[in-house]
Design a protein around this nucleic acid. Sequence first.
DNA 1: GCGACAG
DNA 2: ATCTTGTCGC
Length: 278
Amino acid sequence: MWVGGVCRRPPIGWDDVPTWRAVRATGECVLPGQAERLRTEGVPVQDGRVDLSGARFDGFPSNGPLLALKAEQDALAERVSLRDEPGDEPAPPGPIAAVDVAYPSPGVARAAYVEMEPNSLEPTYELAVESPAPFPYVSGFLTYRELPAYAALIERLCGCRGEPGRAPSVVLVDGNGILHPRRGGVASGLGVLADVPTVGVAKKRLCGTVREDGRIELDGEVVGACVANPAIDGGKPIFISPGHRVSVATAERLATDWFRDHRLPEPLWRADRLSKTG
DNA sequence: GCGACAG
DNA sequence: ATCTTGTCGC
């Protein structure tokens, strides 16, 4: 939010909001007549700059919600496994699934599930489930917005299909896995929650550095790969990272093996569309 | 101090 | 992510 812009031209109904009391972090006054007005209120101002040592207000009520969630993410990261499943690598390609979430209206999430067999062009199974989405989108905390929707999806999935015997060997998730400031993106969250191998696929880079070889480095560690679908010339790349129970190399192979006619791996493209159409 | 920031 | 008109390309 551009605080300066709002304070310079307060919205209707902000007559009671003391917008002139907001200054730069340096104490510098930026609004016309701001320094003078603050001085009349007893605020120490010198050279158009507030002496923040005594005048600063930082008594905003907060229990630091994101700090607690960061701790949760650290705990999640501890539970993430980067080991490949036996028989998954080198790899008879098995059935794969993909999930994504759309928001048909504010506060409502629609999670979609698409399952495909290696050689079929059409999905083997599809399901979309709606649920409340009270948590806002905050970069780095996507898990808290979308995981509840996936939980609702899984619940219905088990109820509709029963037979937990033929679960997909891996689930592609729209978002990051360990390519995350605390190594705990949505793909990892879903993987740990459902105890299934997951691969994170993001359309934009959240963090890390893309090396010349396409590998993505974070704190000196390779956490994923940046790859474009060769079938689309001039296409933008996607950012692949392990969610849970797969290595970086396997995550990349699983996702890129499903490149077809779209930027995203086919199952994920279908899940994205299903989440939007219902 | 300034820019970046999954969906 | 979602809101939107025209527009570029196959």
